[in-house]
Amino acid sequence: MMETDTPIYVNNTQIENVESYVYLRQRHSTRDKNKDKENQRRITAGWTAFAKHRDIFKGNIGTCLKRQIYNIAYFQQ
């Protein structure tokens, strides 16, 4: 990919040049080809979803229901 300092405009709005972004829950980087940051971001998102509903996960309900709650919490981030 060729880097340029020439601004790009769409409908008279300048497009921001970024080094990384999240698309479809996956971090992409224009410079860093190392996946460590993406892996750490996913781990953090998983623990955040777990911590949000800690009382439910420690409760006496079925694993199937716990998994459904975790998935809802994780994918709403």
Rank of each mutant, 00 (worst) to 15 (best):
Q26S: 14
N60C: 06
R27Q: 07
C64R: 15
D55V: 12
Q40P: 00
P7M: 00
Q26L: 13
A49K: 02
D5R: 08
Q68D: 14
Y9H: 09
T4Q: 08
E19S: 13
K37V: 03
R42T: 07
G59M: 00
T44P: 01
K66S: 00
D36V: 11
T4N: 05
D5N: 15
S29Q: 05
R54H: 05
E38S: 00
I15L: 12
W47I: 12
G46D: 00
Q14E: 14
R25I: 01
I61Q: 06
G62W: 05
T30E: 12
I43A: 08
N12C: 06
N60Y: 04
T6Q: 10
R42N: 13
S20N: 08
I43V: 12
M2C: 10
A45W: 01
K35M: 13
E38Q: 04
T44V: 08
I43D: 08
N71W: 13
F75C: 09
I8A: 11
E19W: 08
M1R: 05
Q76N: 13
N71L: 15
N12Y: 08
Y23M: 04
A51M: 15
R54G: 02
L24P: 00
D32H: 09
L24W: 07
S29K: 05
R27N: 02
N39W: 09
V18S: 04
R54P: 01
D5A: 09
I61V: 11
R54N: 12
V18D: 04
Q76T: 11
V10T: 06
T13Q: 15
C64Q: 14
V22T: 08
N71D: 15
Y9K: 02
E3D: 11
S20R: 05
Q77N: 04
D5I: 11
I8S: 10
A49C: 05
R41D: 14
T44S: 12
T13P: 01
I72N: 15
I43T: 10
K35N: 11
K52D: 12
Q40Y: 05
I43P: 03
K66Q: 02
K33E: 12
F50P: 01
V10G: 02
E38I: 01
Y9P: 02
Y9V: 07
L65K: 15
A49P: 03
N60K: 12
E3R: 11
N17K: 14
Y74E: 07
